[in-house]
Design a protein around this nucleic acid. Structure first.
Length: 272
DNA sequence: AGTTCCCTGAGG
DNA sequence: CCTCAGGGAACT
């Protein structure tokens, strides 16, 4: 569930209380999924910055190394105090010299990823990173138009991180509703007006959701443990059977691109 | 490009 | 007990 706005919210929150002292201790739960023993070698390094690429959180150290964190579905990355008691879902704790800030990573369903890279060059060379598409908040309209010149269903295309990054199931449904586009519409069949609506809806919804601290649907928490506020602004996601806020038709749930999909059947017509 | 699987907790 | 939730890798 963490999509671009939730990941951006986490990154901004993590930056706010970043300790500048050396890492003093790494506590790691060794599971098959997070077999990340090399992370322990970060002791002594200092945090220099925290950035985002798509849904990946990049934690940079003064020796050039980078810890890449993907939250998957239920991952949480929070600052806590040294008195925090790791539970059975806490996989990593980073402690810092002369600091009360402890960074911990929890992931109930273990769909997340932790990986340490020796340098920026090695991170960028990683296939999973190199093939990521453009950032929705940076992309130009002409470039966006270009991405849509394929036959695939628009929803499948938006969800594909190698086409464009940051979309997950919630924001895809919301953006398509706002742009009045049916999720099964072949992308290349969208006219210039529809593409422009989609482009503007994408920018607006991502920006508003970031400003609201993301959407807390199930597990999402900001890096300080607070809930996001954008869930109250969602117009179609999980509103199956409720009235469309634009035309009062009942919202339908269907399966598209293997994902549960929410649409207003009157506002989002499939045209051929 | 579509399908399966990973993983756990919530809800029926 | 069963089904569902879904990001992304690894298949086919």
């Amino acid at each position: 569930m963490p999509e671009l706005p939730e990941v951006e919210t986490i990154v901004r929150g993590l930056r706010r209380s970043m300790p500048r002292t050396p890492l003093s201790r790494v506590r790691l739960k060794q599971t098959k999924k997070f077999a990340s023993r090399p992370i322990a070698s970060l002791v002594g390094a200092k945090l220099v910055r925290i950035t985002r690429r798509g849904k990946n959180i990049l934690i940079w150290f003064d020796d050039g190394r980078c810890l890449a964190v993907h939250l998957g579905m239920t991952g949480q990355l929070c600052w806590t105090s040294p008195s925090y008691r790791p539970d059975r879902h806490t996989h990593l704790c980073l402690e810092f010299t002369q600091s009360d800030q402890v960074l911990h990573f929890r992931d109930v369903r273990r769909f997340g990823r932790l990986k340490l890279y020796p340098s920026k060059a090695r991170l960028l060379a990683e296939a999973a990173m190199a093939k990521l598409g453009p950032e929705p908040l940076r992309i130009s309209l002409p470039h966006f138009k270009e991405l849509l010149g394929r036959r695939r269903m628009i929803k499948a295309l938006l969800l594909d991180q190698s086409v464009i990054v940051g979309f997950g199931n919630i924001y895809t449904d919301e953006v398509l509703f706002a742009a009045r586009i049916h999720p099964a519409q072949p992308a290349e069949s969208l006219g210039p007006l529809a593409v422009a609506r989609l482009y503007r809806a994408m920018k607006r919804i991502f920006k508003q959701a970031i400003a609201a601290g993301g959407s807390s649907i199930r597990d999402f928490r900001q890096s300080d443990g607070q809930l996001g506020r954008f869930q109250t602004s969602l117009k179609v996601y999980q509103r199956t059977g409720k009235k469309c806020l634009r035309c009062r038709t009942k919202i339908q749930r269907l399966i598209i691109a293997g994902r549960s999909t929410h649409i207003c059947p009157a506002c989002q017509l499939l045209d051929s």
